[in-house]
Nucleic acid binder design. Structure first.
Length: 594
RNA sequence: GGGGUCGUAGCUCAGUUUGGUUAGAGCACCUGCCUGUCACGCAGGGGGUCGCGAGUUCGAGUCUCGUCGACCCCGCCA
């Protein structure tokens, strides 16, 4: 098909172009047929321009053809740019001072009536939008997000390149690793019964690159995890993967802060203050009940274990005696919260697995509570004092193991914040609402109840703090890791660690994780071997690129910043992946569906 | 694996509480009229497996059970 190449885009014509004969290629956005004259908004990714078919200014053939135009037809039009008549300018459009009076029209393609409007935001449900993703992607909001994402790639590559990092691609078909998330597996045709795994992250490769002397590596890379999805979790997602030789934590922080600052400045023209504040994992848990606290609102927690350890309330005393924790959340002016709502919070806690929720109101200098006769006024007063309560506050208390008590309250904290509208409307571009935080001093290990063993909290290559190394032999649960997460408004947007670079220490950590010598050799032998040939101290971090894009665009889900996302059941509604395959394909792969 | 919200016209939704005539509205679509609109306007028209399947009932969009799908959360996500 031959058609006239465009001379301009639909976003660029101004009064300076008046008098020019121009050609536009694009889509029909909206048709306004006034009986005589026909006004049409024409759209491409650069903007919209009003084109005009006037039967007195074009041939009757062109005019008759123009009357066939409908939304989403693809056309090539040519005509003269003219100034709009006095009083008919449209100040909402950058091109609103001119019209293009069309003399030539070619319909390049017709369109069915689209299932939802491209030009109008009508709240079409996500299911429909994902099925017709090619139409959804025409919408202005989605185009803006992907354009912003493109800028993020550019800024990221420039920033790391300028700082001596080199981009290296690592394999997508790799060895399955036993730790961490469930792997996506790819069967090997050549090797019967053997499988590749898609990378959960290029972790081992980037460490090997450090051994190889590349010194500073980065990659914008897809990672895959076969776990259940969330608004901020897709089975395949993008990381900015970074590794540095001869680092300490301060160097990593500095490089990351530099990257975030550049991204916000160059993509959104927002100055974010740095360095970012820091908080230990322990403090984050005890103050906010989360290892990724949202600091945009208060509602802090207080550990009252010491206060209640010898209280007459047996639930508390016994829990403390067996090593548990009791903690409280203070809701300032919470007296307006009715009994119904508190009962709702109690149900919420029970669904999380908590025994319940104990509460009291500060009224004058008394605490009023249905549990008062058990806890006693005396101990309630002590609790209130520890929590710095004043008249009108509502106290919510939970009791259980340390991790559960604070996690439950942390989850409740977010729920209450949502219910009470304490979280500012998502404004990813407002620097006063950007609460960055480094969370540091994570434990090396956490105990997995299901498997009855320690698992690495970050990953098995994370170095313990030098001062905690001695705990590895005595009390591994007390050892802290040289790991760090970057948190923004309650979202984990980057996480990393200083790695182990000694073959011996790495073997010891593997054994603590229940990975025997034999298994370690089989799964990670190449890495342990590599460490025997002069591995430099190294460490790094990986950014959740989609999450950063989500926050910077003010989106509620990473699906809004991914061109072709999957649903919460990991389906792609447009192309219907995953799908069944031919028997022939299975045979070649030596696989049978059972 | 568990909890919750939702599913009615192409799209957004009302109707479901308390079962009862032919299931409605706006937008979109089609036809006609209309020469300065920009959410054009006016008149008329077409369009429904009430997600799907059982059950209760004289009668089910409405009640019950099951099931499928989307979304949110817990578990899970080194």
């Amino acid at each position: 098909m031959s058609f006239k190449q465009r001379t301009h885009t639909c976003g660029e014509l101004r009064t300076s172009h008046i008098g020019n004969y121009i050609t536009l290629n694009g889509w029909i956005d909206r048709v306004r047929d006034l009986g005589g004259v026909l006004f049409i908004d024409m759209r491409d990714r650069y903007g919209k321009t009003q084109i005009v078919f006037n039967p007195q200014k074009c041939s009757s053939e062109v005019y008759e053809l123009a009357k066939e135009l409908r939304s989403e037809f693809v056309v090539s039009v040519s005509g003269n740019v003219e100034k709009r008549p006095e009083g008919t300018e449209n100040s909402d459009l950058p091109t609103g001072e001119i019209d293009v009076i069309i003399s030539s029209l070619e319909i390049l393609n017709r369109s069915l009536t689209p299932p939802f409007s491209i030009s109008e935001e009508d709240g079409t449900n996500e299911e429909t939008r994902l099925k017709y993703r090619y139409l959804d992607l025409r919408r202005d909001a989605v185009q803006k997000n992907l354009l912003m994402r493109h800028k993020m790639y550019q800024v990221t590559r420039n920033y790391f390149s300028e700082n001596n990092f080199i981009e290296v691609e690592t394999p997508v078909l790799m060895k399955s690793t036993p730790e961490g998330a469930r792997d996506y597996l790819v069967p090997s045709r050549v090797h019967h019964g053997k499988f590749y795994a898609l990378p959960q992250s290029p972790q081992t490769y980037k460490q090997i690159l450090m051994v190889a002397g590349f010194d500073r590596y980065f990659q914008i890379v897809k990672c895959f995890r076969d776990e259940d999805l969330r608004a901020d979790r897709q089975p395949e997602f993008t990381q900015i993967d970074v590794e540095i030789s001869f680092p300490d934590e301060e160097l990593v922080y500095k490089i990351v802060e530099g990257c975030m600052t550049r991204l916000y400045k160059e993509v959104l023209n927002v100055e974010i203050p740095s360095p970012f504040p820091r908080m230990s994992y322990h403090d984050a848990m005890e103050k906010y009940g989360s290892d990724k606290p949202d600091l945009r609102f208060d509602l802090q927690l207080t550990n009252v274990t010491d206060v209640v350890k010898d209280s007459p309330f047996r639930l508390f005393a016994e829990n403390v005696a067996k090593g548990g924790a009791v903690a409280g959340m203070k809701i300032s002016n919470g007296n307006e919260i009715g009994r119904n709502q508190i009962d709702g919070y109690t149900d919420f806690m029970k669904k999380l697995g908590a025994g319940g929720l104990i509460w009291g109101r500060v009224v004058g200098d008394k605490i009023e509570s249905p549990t008062e006769k058990h806890i006693t006024q005396e101990y309630f007063q002590k609790i209130a004092k520890k929590m710095n309560c004043v008249d009108g506050d509502l106290i919510l208390l939970a009791s259980g193991s340390w991790i559960n008590t604070f996690s439950w309250l942390g989850t409740l904290r977010l729920e209450i914040a949502r219910k009470r509208n304490l979280i500012p409307a998502s404004a990813g571009w407002d620097e006063t609402q950007m609460k960055f935080l480094w969370v540091t001093e994570f434990p090396m290990f956490e105990f997995n109840e299901e498997e009855k063993r320690f698992v690495a909290m970050h990953h098995p290559f994370t170095s313990p703090s030098m001062e905690d190394v001695h705990f590895l032999d005595s009390e591994p649960n007390k050892a802290r890791a040289r790991a760090y997460d970057l948190v923004l408004n309650g979202n984990e947007i980057a996480g990393g660690s200083i790695r182990i670079h000694s073959s011996e220490l790495q073997s010891k950590v593997f054994s603590l994780l229940g990975i025997g010598e034999e298994e370690a050799k089989r799964k990670f032998g190449f890495m342990l071997d590599a460490f025997k040939y002069g591995a430099p101290p190294h460490g790094g971090i990986a950014f959740g690129f989609d999450r950063i894009a989500m926050l910077m665009s003010g989106s509620k889900s990473i699906r809004d910043v991914i061109a072709f996302p999957k649903t919460t059941s990991a389906m792609s509604l447009m192309d219907e992946a995953p799908s069944e395959v031919d028997e022939k394909q299975l045979k070649e792969l030596h696989i049978r569906v059972i």
